[in-house]
Amino acid sequence: MWRDAVLVAGKDLRIEARSRVATNQVAPFALLVLVLFAFALDPDRGVLTRAAAGLFWVAVLLCALLAVQRAQTVEAGEGTADALRLSGLDPAGIFLGKAGAVAVQLLVLEVLLGLGLVVLYGVDLAGYPVLAATALAATLGLAAAGTLYGALASGSRVRETLLPLLLLPAVAPVLIAATRASEAALGTGGLDVAPGDWLALLGVFSVVYVAAGTVAFGPLMEEQ
């Protein structure tokens, strides 16, 4: 399973490196979202700094949608879905590989968005160990849930519009927990709550969706 996961992740990342969709479209989109938030809220940096954590994770969520849709589109070529089923690759390995590739792209994007927060919103990235742990746990959960719901939606003729409807409500706990944990790390939150509880929630969410994906991905592939 792990060998297959590495093989699939390597293939997906190579495709993204060649196509440059992530660098030429998704990353500029993410930065554009940050700029638009700044326009919409207030040029006053105080507001932006207080809202930075939530805006950051909303931007990540929107980019996760694009990354997941892209990961599904890659497999929509003529005959590739059948070839994957015939290849002998473990469906759980395919799921982990695809989710892993999405997670790697999101982590790179989060670094870029973090720099955007510093430059555009004047955020001081204090408490970075907590921020890093939050990013890892939240990204794993987003990638796993996104890949699972992406496979679920891919059998539908309206998959592009169905995926956000399925995914966004499902990952609301990630948005909330990651925002609260990030606020605690940045010291911008109104509540005095330790980030550990939110990190634990993110961890549970990630474990549940990774487990669900490894079990359910095979049957979902058969339904496509």
Binding site: K11, I15, V74, G77, D82, S87
Partner: peptide, 21 residues
Amino acid sequence: RPRVGLLGHGPALYDELSVAD
């Protein structure tokens, strides 16, 4: 499945990878 080879109507190749990849 791993013991059969199917050449279908589509080429079952990834457009954005090279032939060797």
